[in-house]
Nucleic acid binder design. Structure first.
Lengths: 369, 369
DNA sequence: GTGAAAGCGCTAACAA
DNA sequence: TTGTTAGCGCTTTCAC
């Protein structure tokens, strides 16, 4: 009966190989096995090799919950996003997985579906799971930040990403929404538009607020009066864009250009315009914040403000891991990432009644600070 | 000092409230607290209420790893998908979250990025995390199923979804790839196409194989010879579609219609066709398996085979939970979900040199068995 | 370089 | 109805 395949386990319920099994077989202690498997320098190379070999042979799989319980950390980071079927979040999340992988962390992804209630529940769940850190992009409706304070009290670092809360004391990673919106609006002005509507999102959502502010600032700079009835607050979906266009259309205050808070909203506008027989960009011009990989297949392909999705994801994770490592002296940081104007088929030609496009204007397109 | 806010914790490192704290304060045992918090009928309503009240007051948060270690289950299901920024997987995953939520399960989502190595690592990680079940949609390259066998040996139910392995002994949830491809091809034939190319995926991938088989079967039924040089194997991305079109174009064997294995492939074809000045569907017709929410915004909007994404996600989770609950007598099941033909702007008109479209053909579109 | 003891926070089984 | 006794599998001292 020498060297059976796997440990002999008499009265144990589970069929898992444990460190104890390996220790007994090799006549060393559990501790030695634990250290060896983690590559601890305490243990001799010889012993370590022996232990690792048997572990592999027996198909040993570490028990994370046990490890977690004993060591008080999980090497796991929880993420809460409002939507996953979204042109914006997908690449952000993929970038997060990459960084997590590189650093030996696991990611637990949860989706709030834009529901505040679910969001709160997810925070609690992640806390229960004993994640080492949390990254959240809040829902459109989130106003109350007390649940996030709880995480903080528990000593779990929390980082807001893209859609943030105003609360102080948290890490934040955002795109330059103000600057991007400013640039987009200015582009519309450059090509000769004087009436520019803005389809904004929820009035309280950070990204919507900042984009709106950028839009207004650009108008002011160019001494174009801000007309409040050309600013529509609703949501971030294509249906909102559709409804927004309709509302503008019916109010007989059609602008020359519409600046949309998100790409889906812009799509909704396109659909509505098409149904009314209006051509883009000939009859109504458009520019949007954010895009989709599918934009290049659209005709017309829309000009847009490119968001640093990958960087957003990477930085959010990096900063969170950093904070976990230096948990003692925590100083909250806010990182703002630059956006970029990408010109396609819209918002590039001179308006008939405006001045010639591009006259005296730099055509240069680059990252803004 | 009566009733301080929170337990008095002298020599404890963590600042977490535990069941013990609550038990001591209320002069009951830890077990009573445990049971009360879980709503166990053993404990009187009165005691339960008292305990729950204090737990809430003190902000008690259960410790899942500890619970997991003691009870040997995690109420957690691991999911492995090849991509997340994908028109297909997003809704599938959202559906999974819904079902998980409804059933009190947590989901751990991992992304293999089409890498076999990552996929294997994810299986190990999920096993280490002691998930109660695993759902996987394999990468394009996955051939070796031994890692999945390991899960099975560990007693962890594993369900394949959409992209499956041939291995017996696992639950499988798939769309009717064969039937859908058959229908799509037949539609092309109906509108008068006699030469129909197929841009297929990886030769070994289940979904690609089945769609190819459906395509061939439809041609055979209508006595159209299968021409192997009109079948191109590559990948599932838009670049593959682009390259596929190019290859067809250069070989001077342009078909009347192209049936694409996925929506992104079809997009690539559109792009390539447009660059060559060919109009769709006038010069070259197209039909595709699967779609995207953005298809309605395309012009032309493509006709496609609709995949039951939500159902795929729901059923995968439901079946997995079922299997967890009845772990003793496991009988592997394969569930095939119907697809549906959706007609848009392509593959609907009669070919110039073909017979009139729709003559004698039902225009009815419905779920196929 | 190795190991014994202690305990992480919880639940299961069985007593009382 | 409640409590006692044992662990779950691992890591952390700290002694040898």
């Amino acid at each position: 009966m020498a060297d059976p395949i796997g440990p002999r386990r008499s009265a144990k319920k589970s069929s898992q190989v444990t460190m104890d099994d390996i220790a007994q077989r090799l006549r060393v202690s559990k501790v030695t096995v634990s250290k060896a498997l983690r590559g601890h320098p305490d243990i001799s190379a010889e012993t370590t090799a022996k232990i690792k070999k048997l572990a592999r042979k027996w198909g040993y799989i570490p028990n994370y919950p046990a490890r977690n319980l004993a060591s008080n950390h999980s090497k796991t980071i929880g993420v809460i996003v409002p939507k996953i079927a979204h042109y914006f979040f997908s690449p952000v999340i993929e970038a997060m997985y990459d960084v997590a992988f590189e650093n030996g962390y696991e990611l637990i992804l949860t989706v709030s579906q834009e529901s505040v209630q679910r969001e709160q529940k997810h925070v609690e769940t992640l806390l229960s799971m004993r994640v080492d850190g949390i990254i959240v992009s809040v829902t459109q409706e989130t106003r109350d930040g007390s649940i996030f304070q709880r995480a903080k009290q528990r000593g779990v670092p929390l980082t807001f990403m893209d859609r943030v809360m105003d609360d102080e004391g948290f890490n934040k990673i955002v795109a330059d929404d103000f600057g991007g919106a400013f640039t987009a609006t200015e582009q519309a002005i450059r090509v000769g538009c004087r009436t520019i509507a803005h389809l904004s999102g929820n009035r309280y959502l950070s990204i919507a607020r900042n984009r709106l502010a950028g839009y207004k600032a650009a108008l002011k700079k160019h001494e174009i009066p801000v007309s409040e009835d050309r600013i529509l607050f609703s949501g971030l979906s294509d249906d909102d864009g559709y409804a927004g266009f309709q509302s503008l259309y019916e109010s007989k205050r059609m602008p020359e250009c519409i600046f949309c808070v998100t790409y889906p909203v812009a799509l909704g506008v396109c659909r509505a315009a098409r149904e009314r027989g209006m051509r883009i960009p000939e009859d109504i011009d458009i520019i949007t914040f954010g895009s989709s990989t599918l934009n290049r297949f659209q005709s017309p392909s829309m000009s847009y403000i490119e968001q640093p999705t990958t960087e957003l994801g990477r930085k959010a994770l990096e900063l969170t891991i950093d904070t976990i490592r230096t948990t003692n002296d925590f100083v909250p940081q806010t990182i703002t990432l630059p956006t970029r104007l990408v010109l396609r088929d819209t918002c590039v030609r001179s308006r008939q009644h405006g001045q010639k496009a591009g006259v005296g204007l730099t055509k240069k397109v680059g990252m803004q600070a």
